[in-house]
């Protein structure tokens, strides 16, 4: 069936492809961590009773959730270096490098989504728990750190990971700004060797396998957590 195709191209370019995969995974993991940290801060701001805190946070979340990811990537890739040149007055300032612009773009973008997940997670912890923590004399910060957030995150593990899987797929978008993530590597080889079908099939297969496995793990976790409670 596949006569005329050259699947050997995959074997030959495996080192290059794995480098791309490392980039994708690194970008995913780091922006997930960054996104969760920033998302937690945003969630706490959105839940705060003070306008000065929740208005900016809501504005931020709504703005980023109604912006296509690709636009955010473009902003950071093209606008930040420009801004840096303007600000530093150095015509040769190149900004912060492609990996970091991508990382920042993804972190800022994902934080908006994580914020909403975490906010729902915090609200899913019964109010009585907050009361019990306060009644013992814990401060707001202590109650959050010791009592509310641990329970919220435990409930949220599956959905946070699911969002991580989506994020992993989305990192493939960085190839549009010429970065060599897994998708970028595959597409460069595809163009170079004229092996589009082979490379894109291979890329699809790899994304499918990884995401399928990760989803399976999430499902197992979900089961475990729902039994444990």
């Amino acid at each position: 069936m596949f006569t005329g195709f050259d699947f050997d191209v995959i074997a030959r370019s495996l080192p290059y492809l794995s480098q791309g995969m490392l980039f994708s995974l690194g970008l995913t993991v780091l922006s997930m961590i960054g996104g969760i940290v920033l998302g937690t801060v945003l969630a706490l701001m959105r839940l705060a009773p003070f306008r000065v805190l929740h208005l900016p946070a809501s504005g931020y979340v709504n703005l980023l959730r109604s912006t296509p990811l690709i636009l955010v990537i473009f902003w950071f890739y093209f606008l930040v270096p420009l801004a840096m040149k303007r600000l530093s007055g150095d015509a040769y300032a190149t900004g912060i490098g492609p990996f970091y612009s991508a990382l920042i773009a993804f972190t800022l973008f994902e934080a908006a989504y994580y914020c909403e997940i975490i906010r729902a997670g915090i609200q899913s912890v019964p109010r009585g728990q907050v009361h019990a923590a306060f009644a013992l004399g814990l401060t707001y910060g202590q109650a959050m750190r010791r009592v509310i957030l641990p329970q919220a995150f435990r409930n949220m593990v599956p959905i946070l990971l699911t969002q991580g899987i989506i994020l992993f797929q989305d990192t493939s978008l960085v190839y549009v700004v010429g970065l060599t993530d897994f998708m970028g590597a595959a597409s460069k080889i595809a163009q170079r060797d004229g092996r589009l079908v082979e490379m894109y099939l291979f890329a699809a297969l790899i994304y499918f396998i990884l995401c399928f496995l990760a989803s399976y793990v999430v499902k197992r976790l979900q089961l475990r957590y729902s039994v444990g409670r």
């Binding site: 009585g128 728990q129 019990a132 009644a135 013992l136 004399g137 010791r146 435990r154 409670r229």
Partner: peptide
């Protein structure tokens, strides 16, 4: 917080912290 720490409270639904062992529930505060 200081005032509350001097007044004990017991709730209808217990409100023990489910992610901590019994002894940790007692020592946290």
């Amino acid at each position: 917080p200081k005032l509350r720490s001097r007044v004990g409270m017991v709730f209808q639904h217990f409100e023990l912290f489910p992610h901590m062992k019994v002894l940790e529930n007692l020592t946290l505060a």
